[in-house]
């Protein structure tokens, strides 16, 4: 099991300030819920190395990734996978070469990378799509391919930004179950950012409620429901099962 995360995320951007502590045990899944502008996506961006910290630190499996200063590891050197809300599959590459991309970047030869990518896609029941272009697969398939693409690199920490927000409501339960299956066999830890409590319920061991850049409450979902620390928590958790709105 990998993915022990100890992070204090400090970011200042104009009037917005993120100051949140995130701690994950190896192999666990944390859901980060909050309203639009709560700082969820910014938190993911700092963990992935897209946005440098202005304060605090990120330590993953004992390795310092960012200390708000010189100790900044760029995204390509972090064992961190990121799946964006829009899967951002490379449109000029086939599905197979999209999945092989991370392996090639890590130095694998073309044939070797393609073979591993082929196996990874087949494991997820996506073996029929290898030769297609991203424009020729559905939104749900694209989301699953993006997940496979991030996982072939064997990251210690997987970040999912609103993985279901761009998917049609009637297709969400199936995709949610599919993501659940992937996370169950994933040895690292994961953070799922979502505005939909149904995602948190299905995917996560623990929930962090973020509001205005700060952690309002954290714990298992049942505990938060039983004893919400703030009216915002109550309101966010009441949205369970209702799919709507867009992430932020």
């Amino acid at each position: 099991m990998t993915g022990a995360l100890e992070a204090r995320l400090g970011v200042r951007r104009g009037a917005f300030e993120l100051d949140a502590e995130l701690v994950l045990a190896p192999g666990t899944v944390l859901a980060v819920v909050g309203r639009n502008g709560a700082g969820k996506s910014t938190a993911l961006a700092t963990l992935a190395g897209i946005t440098p910290l202005s304060g605090g630190r990120i330590v993953l499996d004992g390795v310092l990734l960012d200390d708000g200063g010189r100790g900044f590891e760029p995204p390509e050197r972090r064992p961190v996978g990121l799946v964006l809300q829009q899967p951002a599959l490379f449109p000029h590459l086939t599905v197979l070469d999209n999945v092989a991309f991370g392996l090639r970047a890590a130095g694998a030869g073309r044939a070797d990378a393609r073979e591993q990518a082929q196996h990874a896609l087949e494991d997820q029941g996506l073996g029929d799509f290898t030769d297609r272009r991203p424009s020729q697969v559905s939104g749900g398939q694209a989301a699953r391919i993006a997940l496979v693409r991030a996982l072939v690199r064997r990251p210690a920490l997987l970040l999912l930004d609103e993985p279901l927000a761009a998917i049609d409501a009637e297709l969400r339960p199936a995709l949610r179950a599919s993501i659940r299956g992937v996370l169950d066999s994933f040895p690292g830890s994961a953070i799922v950012v979502t505005h939909d409590v149904a995602d948190a319920e299905a995917l996560a061991d623990e929930v962090v409620v973020l509001d205005s850049g700060r952690v309002l409450q954290r714990g298992p979902l049942a505990g938060l429901r039983a004893e919400p620390a703030d009216p915002v928590v109550t309101r966010l958790l009441a949205g369970a099962g209702q799919d709507g709105g867009s992430g932020g």
Partner: peptide, 22 residues
């Protein structure tokens, strides 16, 4: 779209490789 460069970086591609390949 800058998201493609973000995706490439988180897949381990250096800025140079991201430019050349994506």
């Amino acid at each position: 779209d800058p998201r493609f460069a973000v995706a490439a970086a988180t897949l381990g591609a250096s800025p140079w490789a991201t430019f050349l390949r994506v």
